[in-house]
Design a protein around this nucleic acid. Structure first.
Lengths: 222, 222
DNA sequence: TTTGGATAAATTATAGATAATTATTATTTT
DNA sequence: AAAATAATAATTATCTATAATTTATCCAAA
C-alpha cells in the first residue's frame, strides 16, 4: 500500500476533488477556485493547479485559460458515449483476462455481486459493482487499458449518482451472474457479449423527488 | 484559429514536449528536469510542472514523487496493447461516423492516402496517415472518444518513429483504399473489420543500423 | 423621473516568477 | 562498508502582474 507521504499533495487533492465531483457533492458547472481549495487543504495554489490538470485529463473538469476551472457538465449524449467506450474496452480486457481467471478470482467476483445486491445505498452498490468489474478485468495485465477503463468507470459513476441521488432499490444483478457462469465454463464467446450489453445498458426509470412528483431519470447500470 | 495568447504557457510546453517524445528526439527514460526546461522556455518551473501532469495523463511521461519525471519507456507488449485499444475504439468511432460521411470527406481521405504513399520520410507519412484516420472518424461526433483515440495515435506514432528512424521506404496503402471503397458503398460491415485489422497490424522488419548490422524492429502501421 | 446602455474604476481571480524547504542522490570520511 | 555530509533537484509557499468580472457612474432616450 502506498503510504500517505508517498504521493504529492497535488495527487491527494485531485483524488478528493474527483470523488466529490463523481458523487455529486460538486455540481456540474461549479467554479473550482484555486485559492479557496488551496486554503481548504492548507496549501498554496500550485499543487491545486496540478490537480486541476489531472481532473481535466479525466474529463471531470473543464478549464478555460484565464477564466478558471469548472466542474465538467454532462448530458445523455455523453452518458451514451462513455457507455459505448466502456463496452468496447471492457470486452477487449475480458478477452485477455479470461485465460488468467482462477476459481478464486471468480469467487471473489461472486462475493462482490452479492455485496452489490445487498447494498442499501448507491455508494456501496457502486463500490461493489466496480469491484466486480475490476476483479474480472485486472488479470488482462494491460495497464493502459485498465487505466482508461477506470476513468470511464468514474464518468459512469457520476451519471449514476446524479440519477439516483434520492432513492435506492434493491435489485439482483442477473447480468453479473450470467457472466460468472460463462466464465466458470471457460466460455468467453458467450461471456463477452453479455458484458458488452450489460455495460451499454442505459435505463429510463421514474424517480420520485422531494415534492412527490415523478420525473424521468436516466440510469446507467453496469 | 486559436491565437498564441489564447492558451497558457503550460499547454504550449506540453505540446512541444509531447512532439519531442513522440518523434523520438527525447529517448525513453530521459529525465525531464523542470528547471532546465523552464530555462529553455524562459519561464519558471510552475507551468513546466503543469505540462508534466498532462504528459503523464497521456502516457508519455512517468512521474515518481520527489524523484522527478522521465520520458515513459515502452516495450512490444505496450505496442500491442495500444494497437488493440485503437482497433476497438476506432471501429466504434467508424460505426458512428459512417452515416455522416460525405463524398467530400471521402475525397479528402483519399488525398491523404495518396499523400501518405508519396511521403518521402516517416514524419510526413505519419502526418498523412493521421489525417486519414481523423477524417473518417471525426464525423462520429463523440469528443471523448476522439480525444482517447488521439492520445493512442500519439503513442502509436512513438513506436513508429522509434522503429523506422533511419530508413524509409515507399509503400502503397492498400488497407486505406479498401476502407474507402467500402465506405463509398456505404458498406460499414466490411469497412469496420478491415480498419480493425489494419490498426492492429504490427510488422516485424529488419533494420540496418549505423554499424551495418541488422536487427529486428517492430513497426506498427496504421 | 426613469430606464437602458455604455464606459470607467474597483475588485477578484488566475497565471506566473521568485524564494524557501525538503527529499534524494552522490561524495567523502571514518 | 557504513555513516555523515554536501550537492542536486523536486515540491511547495509567498509574492507580483495581468486579465476578467463586477460595480458604479454617467449620459441619452423615453
Amino acid at each position: 500500500m502506498t503510504s500517505a507521504s508517498e504521493d504529492t499533495i497535488a495527487s491527494r487533492i485531485s483524488r478528493i476533488l474527483a470523488d466529490r465531483i463523481v458523487t455529486g457533492q460538486l455540481d456540474p458547472g461549479t467554479k473550482l477556485r484555486q485559492d479557496h481549495i488551496a486554503e481548504e487543504f492548507g496549501t498554496s495554489h500550485v499543487p491545486v493547479r496540478e490537480a486541476f490538470r489531472r481532473l481535466e485529463a479525466q474529463g471531470l473538469a473543464v478549464s478555460e485559460p484565464r477564466r478558471g476551472v469548472r466542474v465538467a457538465s454532462f448530458d445523455l449524449k455523453e452518458v451514451r458515449e462513455v457507455a459505448q467506450m466502456r463496452a468496447a474496452l471492457e470486452v477487449l480486457a475480458l478477452r485477455h483476462a479470461a485465460p488468467h481467471l482462477t476459481p478464486a478470482i471468480l469467487d471473489q467476483a461472486e462475493e462482490a455481486t452479492v455485496a452489490g445486491d445487498n447494498s442499501r445505498d448507491v455508494r456501496s452498490w457502486e463500490e461493489a459493482n466496480r469491484r466486480f468489474h475490476t476483479l474480472i478485468l485486472t488479470p488482462c495485465g494491460m495497464p493502459r487499458l485498465l487505466a482508461a477503463i477506470s476513468d470511464l468507470h468514474a464518468a459512469s459513476a457520476r451519471f449514476l449518482f446524479a440519477s439516483w441521488r434520492s432513492e435506492w432499490e434493491v435489485r439482483t444483478d442477473h447480468d453479473h451472474r450470467a457472466i460468472l457462469t460463462f466464465l466458470r465454463q471457460g466460455n468467453i464467446e458467450n461471456a463477452a457479449p453479455v458484458l458488452e450489453r450489460h455495460v451499454q445498458w442505459i435505463g429510463q426509470k421514474p424517480v420520485r423527488n422531494a415534492s412527490g412528483a415523478t420525473r424521468d431519470a436516466f440510469a446507467i447500470v453496469g
